[in-house]
Design a protein around this nucleic acid. Structure first.
Lengths: 130, 130
DNA sequence: ATGAAATCTCGAGTTAACTCCAGATCGAGA
DNA sequence: TCTCGATCTGGAGTTAACTCGAGATTTCAT
């Protein structure tokens, strides 16, 4: 099964501009073209775009994703580099998860204060005057 | 207890430039100055900066944080707006948490493939040639 | 008294990640 | 054949969030 850029755009909620931008930045070095030069996306490409979205959503800069893509095209002699990169990135994602949980707790306690104004003085100095 | 901008900078890992930028953007409408015009941070200010960091880290744009700060300075007639904003933001943070967990799973499964190359063909079309 | 350290303002510069536009081309349907 | 829609490229523009630099002021230890 093959897909046009428009179909991929809709599938991932990425604009066509963004997909072309990713390609231009070297994130999809393996993308094929039809005889008129249009991009043709395969299932493999869709899976790789999922991975791009995953890495992007977890804060990896595009240059680093490109590095990973480049390593992938270079074959098995780069397996270790790729594994190290992903393992380091995994640690960052774990920290993001922890941070996000703490942030959620802080937001929850703020909301609780709005629900129970009598708690206000226990809170953060009380910037939120009630 | 009062703090200089330098102390606050170190406490939060925000640059002095960033703190002044936040102030300029209206994120700290309550900040006091000493007689020579230097910013003086109180405990309340530190707690509010924690909240700024929390909202910023969870993806709230600075303009929206400013809106919240403005509502805070307007007193209790804006309590409902503030509560609605935080409640909506909370939903987004919950979604971020879910997304982050999914992304972590994907990264984990990738790493697992690198640890067990024989799993490779089960994975994502196998862009990562091994 | 003086030189260093910390702060200030204003405004310009930077970076990442898009986002858009103009002009060209190609393939399919009336 | 003509036109419409989808795609292409190259390059310029945008936006958010900083980041920096110049020049001025104040404070404080020697």
């Amino acid at each position: 099964m093959k897909y046009s850029i428009n179909e991929v755009s809709k599938k991932f909620g990425l604009s066509i501009h963004t997909l072309r931008y990713y390609d231009k930045e070297g994130l999809m070095p393996f993308l094929e073209r039809d005889r008129t030069g249009n991009r043709v996306f395969s299932e493999t490409d869709l899976n790789w775009i999922s991975m791009i979205c995953c890495l992007k959503n977890t804060g990896m800069p595009i240059k680093e994703i490109k590095q990973y893509a480049d390593w992938c095209t270079q074959g098995m002699q780069t397996i270790n580099e790729r594994k190290v990169m992903l393992t380091n990135h995994r640690k960052k994602v774990l920290m993001q998860l922890e941070d996000l949980k703490k942030d959620l707790n802080l937001i929850d306690s703020k909301i609780e204060v709005y629900d129970n104004p009598e708690l206000a003085q226990k809170m953060y100095g009380g910037l939120e005057k009630q």
